[in-house]
C-alpha cells in the first residue's frame, strides 16, 4: 500500500495553501462541534471561499451547500474531503471532472486508489493531513499554542500592513 507520506510534501502543501482561493468541502457538517465544521469555519475566517458539499443541507456556515461536486456551477481550486476512505475514488473522479487543481484528504482519510485517480489526472494530492492545521502551521498562528510547527527562519514577516 502506498504510504500517505508520499502525499505529505510540505512544498505541495504550502503551494496549495498559497494559491487556493476556493475550497469545496465534501462532507462538511452543520454541527459546530464536528471537526469538518471547525475546519470550514477556520478556512472561511482566513479568506478562502468555502463551498459546502452535503446532500442533506442547503446552507452551512452561511454558504450555499451543493449535493455533489459536479453540481457546483463554478470552478473550485481544492476539494477537501471528510468522508470514509471507500467514498474517495468516486469523489476523486468528480474532482477531476470538475476541474479542481488539488485533492486534499483529511486526517484518517487514507485512499491510495483515490489519490492515484487524482494524481493521474494531474491534480496535486495531500493525504492524511488537516488543511486547518497545515495552514496554521505554515501561515497562521499554531505556534501561539506551543505546537511544533517545524518552522525555522530568521526572516522578519511583514507585521504591519
Amino acid at each position: 500500500m502506498t504510504s500517505p507520506v508520499r502525499y505529505q510534501d510540505p512544498r505541495v502543501i504550502l503551494a496549495t495553501l498559497r494559491s487556493a482561493r476556493t475550497v469545496a468541502i465534501v462532507g462538511l457538517s452543520k454541527d459546530p462541534l464536528r471537526p469538518s465544521n471547525f475546519i470550514g469555519f477556520y478556512l472561511k475566517r482566513h479568506g478562502y471561499t468555502i463551498v459546502p458539499v452535503n446532500p442533506r443541507e442547503t446552507e452551512i456556515l452561511g454558504e450555499r451547500a451543493y449535493p455533489s461536486l459536479t453540481a457546483i456551477p463554478f470552478l473550485v481550486d481544492v476539494v477537501d474531503v471528510f468522508r470514509r476512505p471507500d467514498a474517495v475514488p468516486d469523489i476523486a473522479r468528480d474532482a477531476v471532472a470538475s476541474g479542481a487543481k488539488a485533492l486534499w484528504l483529511q486526517f484518517g482519510v487514507i485512499s491510495p486508489d483515490g489519490a492515484k485517480i487524482a494524481e493521474d489526472a494531474g491534480l496535486d494530492v495531500v493525504m492524511d493531513r488537516c488543511m486547518k492545521v497545515e495552514h496554521a502551521r505554515h501561515l497562521g498562528r499554531m505556534h501561539w499554542l506551543g505546537f511544533n510547527t517545524g518552522r525555522i527562519t530568521a526572516v522578519r514577516e511583514r507585521g504591519l500592513g
Binding site: H138, H143, N148, T153, G159, L160
Partner: peptide
Amino acid sequence: QGTREFGFDTRAIHAGQRPDPY
C-alpha cells in the same frame, strides 16, 4: 520552509521563535 530538517543545535537556538513581526 518546511522542507529541511534542521539540526539539534540550530533548533535549540531558533525553534519556536521568529523575529517579532511588529
